[in-house]
Design a protein around this nucleic acid. Structure first.
Lengths: 105, 105
DNA sequence: GGTCAATACTTCGTGATACGATGTATAACG
DNA sequence: CGTTATACATCGTATCACGAAGTATTGACC
């Protein structure tokens, strides 16, 4: 999938992935795989961005002797998803414009 | 509208704007305004990118003593729009994932 | 017990790109 | 004659997704 097209989607996807249940990096990637593929470097960049934007909080926990960082969505994070859904209406309008411009010859 | 969300849309919008009729910079911006706002610097960057990608061809013409550059879509440009429509199916899947992850409490 | 895949997180550098700022030049309007 | 609209161009910057590379542990296979 085109990178540019993903850009507006990834942040919200990650938020959606932790919305119902706290999750951690590796699991987020696997959960999103059927919908969007993203590399580890991309994910961790996103998680840091979302954290500094107070869209989520982090909690470290040990699991089988290995460290795991669990991410928990905040009110702002939930708000971000709602904003996205609003903006989606504009996106649909744009898509319709692109589709509409058909040559009927 | 969120810049990131626009990123995958702008190129195709510009192509759609010249699809049925050759157009020029200033007119493209005005035609797109109801759907997406984009600045002149952005547009001319896009037009150059699309030109070097052979998505369109350019032709200079005088209009009322002023220079105008008319842009004409190529086969590749039309193909780009079709590819976009295909990719859109994936985008819809992603959107549905984001929407689906609702908390039902 | 040694090798390898899977799990899990981190850092660095790079290329793509939307935008504001700024500039040039002409036409139209009052 | 000043202002607005038309029309195109360039430069620098910030944001961002990604590949590459690295660290470290667990578990399976032979």
């Amino acid at each position: 999938m085109d990178i540019q097209l993903k850009r507006g989607l990834l942040d919200v996807c990650v938020l959606a992935a932790i919305k119902n249940e706290d999750s951690y990096g590796y699991k987020i990637i696997k959960d999103l795989k059927p919908y969007v593929e993203l590399s580890e470097s991309t994910l961790y960049t996103i998680l840091k961005r979302l954290e500094s934007g107070k869209m989520l909080t982090v909690r470290s926990a040990e699991h089988d002797g290995r460290l795991r960082k669990y991410y928990h969505i905040t009110k702002a994070g939930l708000g971000r998803i709602e904003d996205f859904k609003e903006e989606w209406k504009e996106v649909i309008t744009i898509y319709q414009f692109v589709k509409k411009e058909e040559r009927h010859d």
